[in-house]
């Protein structure tokens, strides 16, 4: 055999792979032979391998199904946790401090603007400025005037805070006007508020009554929310260096008073009230009329509703 190997080796290098292959085979046989003699240890190893594989598979399967089962659990959002009162030990045994409503069922506020009634007196604007100490040059609410001319163009201007009396705005020739109306703007208090979602420090939050508020102590003034609001309702207050916006006068409504702009409207174009009370003026008005919201396509679900909007109003 060796001889032939040698001859093969001498005859040509082509036979070399065959030799190595044979050697490998020869090396292989003692091992399989050993397997038969030391069968106990070898077989035991195989069984333990099989066991661990089975264990691994069963654990992996239970983990996968377990994680699926977890998704079936009811999701708890912060709003729902706020509604459910904490058990006494978790709450330090104290009565939960509720600023307005009972823990079980919070009050829900709504706002209706009747553009068919607004006369553009601007009284709401100065009232809001006085009530909320809004710095000059900034506004929490404003009133737009839409003028549709007979040639099809639409002009929008802002109602001066003093009303139109002695205003410097150019006088519009009524003969050229098709229709004209005023649209008061204020915070829409969206159910899915984009301004709230983008706040990086949880300084922007929704009260249990559904009012969007700002924690001025924690606001870092990054202005992200100012960019996020599709209605342009937020601004950075230069006095506090914090974001600021219309709160529907949260400090008034929680004392059973009306927001300042509602109080100041001489014609009842702004209606504020409780949505959860069917006897409130707001609920009655909402039940009797058809209303619209601004930029409905954005899916922000505003709680501020309007009567008499035209498609040009954005």
């Amino acid at each position: 055999m060796n001889k032939s190997h040698d001859s093969a080796g001498a005859s040509g290098c082509g036979s070399r792979p065959a030799t190595t292959g044979l050697n490998i085979l020869n090396q292989g046989t003692p091992c399989s032979g050993g397997g038969s003699c030391g069968g106990v240890s070898c077989g035991g190893e195989q069984r333990s391998n099989a066991d661990s594989r089975r264990q691994f598979l069963s654990r992996a399967t239970s983990m996968v199904f377990g994680s699926f089962a977890l998704t079936l659990l009811p999701m708890e959002s912060p709003e729902t946790t706020a509604e459910t009162p904490l058990p006494a030990p978790l709450n330090g045994g104290a009565v939960p401090a509720q600023p307005v409503a009972s823990a079980a069922k919070p009050v829900l506020y709504g706002f209706l603007v009747d553009t068919e009634k607004c006369i553009g007196s601007g009284k709401c604007l100065s009232a809001c400025r006085t009530e909320n100490h809004v710095p000059d040059g900034y506004s929490r609410t404003w009133v737009e005037r839409y003028i549709h001319f007979k040639d099809g163009t639409v002009q929008v201007d802002l109602v001066p805070e003093t009303g139109y009396h002695e205003s410097t705005l150019p006088i519009v020739d009524a003969a050229l006007v098709d229709k004209a109306y005023f649209v008061p703007k204020l915070c829409n208090q969206c159910v899915d508020a984009p301004c709230n979602q983008v706040c990086p420090v949880h300084a922007s939050f929704t009260s249990p009554e559904g009012v969007e508020l700002i924690d001025t102590d924690h606001c870092i003034g990054c202005g992200y929310c100012v960019q996020a609001c599709p209605y342009g309702m937020r601004y950075i207050n230069p006095e506090t260096n914090s974001a600021d916006k219309c709160t529907w006068c949260y400090h008034r409504i929680t004392k059973n008073e009306e927001p300042a702009c509602v109080e100041a409207c001489p014609v009842g174009a702004r209606v504020f009230g409780r949505l959860d009370d069917p006897e409130s003026e707001l609920s009655k008005r909402l039940g009797a009329t058809r209303t619209q919201v601004l930029k409905e396509h954005l899916g922000t679900h505003p709680k501020l509703q309007y009567i008499g909007l035209s498609k040009e109003v954005v």
């Binding site: 949880h202 249990p208 508020l213």
Partner: peptide
């Protein structure tokens, strides 16, 4: 909720 509860009382 995920915010400072005192802020709510301060504003109110």
């Amino acid at each position: 909720g995920p915010y400072r509860g005192d802020a709510l009382r301060e504003i109110a």
